[in-house]
Design a protein around this nucleic acid. Structure first.
Length: 260
DNA sequence: GCGACAG
DNA sequence: ATCTTGTCGC
């Protein structure tokens, strides 16, 4: 394996960026992007699901809900389940203080520290539930600079991550209405998303046969797109994969509780 | 300059 | 992200 062992420190070393501006954030994304190892993708291969479950027996889902009153407070939901049986093994919420505002294209700077804290506390609290892969609510390399929040979380934790976005970030000429057309007329459940540079940026998935709005999957860190797609399909009972959907529910509950 | 813009 | 009712369908 050619993964950079000290990646985490390199990402972590940026506590300074909390007070930095968009220019610095851009430069950091460009720098961190170089730590990604993007292997060539053969999307025609067949994935052995049993192998996939062996490689990633526990899958985690992360989501974050902002407090209704306080702009800098949020609640992180972390759910761990068996990737094969979808049995929930761990379910927890964490209160977090957000250090930066949301700026489109820089979601990771707002959310990643809180998400990372939640995962790291799991390692101490219940290490037998520590997952081999994480689903992150947001994009991976399907991003203006190829480094979305899922990459930021994965690189920092040195853990495989998958970005799952509910709407399309317009990058490289990608267009939502074209994608909807194409995915329907092809009669398929998913289609790869190619940038104008002909690289695969991710995939649009129709989670099940009733869903009409696609979700957008891209690799975050240390995983192949085809593996990511198969894991996401397997964990989808509804439009949103179960780990993220439940994480969303519990973080929302926490937000509502603490509001009263 | 204008629009678009994960959560 | 949030503000929001009913309604249709599995």
């Amino acid at each position: 394996m050619s993964w950079n062992q000290d990646s985490a420190q390199k990402v972590d070393s940026g506590s300074k960026w909390i007070s930095a501006g968009v220019e610095e954030w851009m430069a950091l994304q460009e720098t961190w992007k170089r730590h990604l190892v993007l292997e060539p993708e053969d999307l025609s291969l067949t994935v052995d699901m049993e192998r996939l479950f062996e490689a990633f027996p526990l899958i985690g889902g992360l989501d974050i809900t902002p407090d209704k009153k306080r702009d800098n407070i949020a609640y992180v939901g972390l759910v761990i389940m068996s990737s094969k049986s979808l049995e929930v093994k761990y379910c927890q919420t964490h209160r977090a203080t957000l250090q930066t505002p949301y700026v489109p294209g820089f979601l990771g700077f707002r959310e990643a520290p809180a998400l990372i804290n939640a995962v790291e506390s799991l390692k101490k609290e219940k290490s037998d539930c520590f997952p081999q892969v994480l689903l992150v609510d947001g994009n991976g390399i399907l991003h203006p600079r190829g480094f979305g929040s899922a990459c930021q979380v994965g690189l920092s934790l040195n853990l495989p991550t998958i970005g799952v976005a509910k709407s399309l970030l317009n990058v490289d000429g990608l267009n939502i209405s074209q994608i909807k057309e194409q995915i329907c007329q092809q009669g398929k459940r998913w289609m790869p998303l190619f940038g104008s540079s002909k690289n695969v940026l991710g995939a649009a998935l129709l989670s099940n046969e009733y869903v009409k709005r696609p979700i957008f999957v891209s690799i975050g860190y240390r995983i192949k797109l085809l593996e990511a797609i198969n894991l996401v399909f397997h964990t989808c009972r509804y439009r949103i994969p179960e780990p993220i959907r439940i994480a969303d529910q519990i973080s929302r509950q926490a937000s509502n509780r603490n509001f009263c």
